[in-house]
Nucleic acid binder design. Structure first.
Length: 437
DNA sequence: TCTGGGGTCCTAGGACCC
DNA sequence: TCTGGGGTCCTAGGACCC
């Protein structure tokens, strides 16, 4: 029975909430599907001998790496996402380590998303392993939302991995519910019980509230979502700014969630590449060469996506202190690293001087043209707006094709090639990402 | 052997224009 | 000559998410 002491239902209790028209569901039904220990689970699927054993996907312990995903077998040792790999290695020395296979994860993710899209056109993929979906009875299907969620879970399991699902009247509730029972759980918050479900939870449980907001709320005496739901907006404004009213509404369980139809593509806002070096860089030629390498990959990805951007951003982090960024708007949008890397060099020079130990370097392009329809034909001369210098662009595209066919190492512009060789020889970095499997 | 890499969104100050 | 205010663009920094 779905009794009043519980604001949510799981497992066998769910049979009680699927009776009647639409399973007795009134109003919006929003689901959040989260794949369980996704990267590690795919590795265990692809390597049967790793099943039942602690598997860690992440950077290497020797090179300032962090854990991306720990399998459920590794978690009892205290290993979790974002933990420094060196620490994870101490906690679980026998774990199987891999740097991951992202193309494979994307492939599996696409299969999962196709399963959800098969159930409803209203799907909003938020990351490689998470998606919201709207299965409001009467909107697309007349079935009980609980039964649809159970079917999605079962069909994902048939792929050889598992997911956890939260189901509720809006996104905030669905997201929190999905974390309630993992792995392979289904947690349902019936319409009308959402406020009571949220009230006792710590504010940090709600997405959008991180470390800083949590601390600021605690200072104001607000520790639970129930307290947040009742706090005067004037008290919240200094903490959340213009989002104060919305955060209060979400904590009350009264947020109106919209899940767009699947074919509305989320447009990309920026493309970037950054690297933390196993050993700090101090020489100008090393910093410039690393910038060129990072820029090459950004350029390649821009051309593959058919994007041209106007703003160049560089990021520098020193061994001490936090990061610094510098950006500049270009006169014309471009996807050509030969153009934007030289600007990036000037920007780096404004933040850094030779001798300062650089721990991390990043380069990004943003502010894309609204009509991203730049042609990507091989050896095209120039696009309609003359956005990039024609010959170089043709060369870049041609080089991309060669790389795709023969591997990334096949072609490199002079400086980058030399850098790559030097660094491999000097064992600075770029010998990274060799899976230990 | 202490802290990644990919993003999005917001804020705030200064420049500049009307 | 002195003055204010609003709007927009550009830039730097930071919070937050997976």
């Amino acid at each position: 029975m779905y009794d009043s002491e519980h604001t949510y239902a799981q497992g066998n209790d769910l049979t009680d909430v699927t009776a009647g028209l639409f399973g007795g569901w009134r109003g919006p039904a929003i689901g959040l599907m989260d794949l369980d220990a996704f990267f590690a689970s795919v590795e265990q699927l692809d390597h049967p001998e790793w099943r039942g054993k602690p598997v860690i996907v992440g950077g290497s312990p020797e090179e300032r790496g962090v854990v991306s995903t720990a399998s459920y077998e590794a978690r009892p040792y205290g290993v979790h996402s974002a933990m420094p790999s060196a620490q994870a290695k101490r906690l679980c020395p026998d774990a199987i380590w891999t740097h991951g296979h992202f193309d494979r994860y994307r492939e599996m993710s696409a299969k999962v998303m196709a399963i959800i899209a098969d159930e409803t056109p209203y799907i909003d993929q938020v990351s490689i392993d998470e998606a919201f979906f709207d299965i409001t009875p009467g909107r697309f299907s007349r079935e009980s939302p609980v039964e649809i969620a159970q079917r999605i879970s079962r069909r994902v399991s048939e792929l050889g991995i598992t997911c956890s699902i939260g189901l509720g009247p809006n996104k905030t509730v669905a997201k929190i519910a999905s974390e309630r029972d993992k792995p392979r759980g289904l947690t349902v918050v019936l319409p009308g019980t959402e406020a009571a479900f949220l009230a006792p939870l710590p504010v940090r449980a709600m997405s959008g509230i991180g470390k800083a907001a949590d601390a600021a709320l605690a200072k104001a005496g607000i520790r639970t979502l129930g307290a947040l739901a009742e706090a005067p907006v004037a008290k919240l404004a200094p903490i959340f700014g213009s989002a104060a009213e919305m955060m209060k509404l979400r904590a009350q369980g009264r947020e109106q969630s919209s899940v767009k139809p699947q074919d509305a593509p989320d447009e990309v806002k920026s493309v970037s590449n950054e690297r933390t070096f196993a050993h700090d860089l101090t020489a100008r030629e090393d910093v410039y060469a690393a910038l060129a390498l990072l820029g090459e990959s950004v350029g390649r990805r821009l051309r593959r996506k058919g994007l041209v951007g106007r703003t160049v951003t560089v990021k520098v982090r020193y061994t001490f202190g936090s990061g610094h960024t510098a950006q500049r708007k270009l006169p014309h949008p471009t996807d050509d690293e030969n153009l934007f890397v030289s600007v990036a060099r000037e920007l780096v020079d404004s933040l850094w001087q030779p001798g300062m130990p650089v721990r991390l370097l990043g380069i990004g392009i943003s502010d894309f043209d609204a009509d991203e329809g730049v042609q990507t034909d091989l050896f095209c001369d120039v696009d309609e707006r003359g956005a990039v210098s024609s010959d170089r662009r043709g060369l870049s595209v041609a080089v991309d094709h060669v790389r795709e066919r023969f591997g990334a190492g096949a072609v490199s512009f002079g400086r980058a090639a030399r850098f790559e060789r030097d660094l491999v020889r000097e064992d600075k970095f770029l010998t990274q990402n060799k899976p230990t499997e």
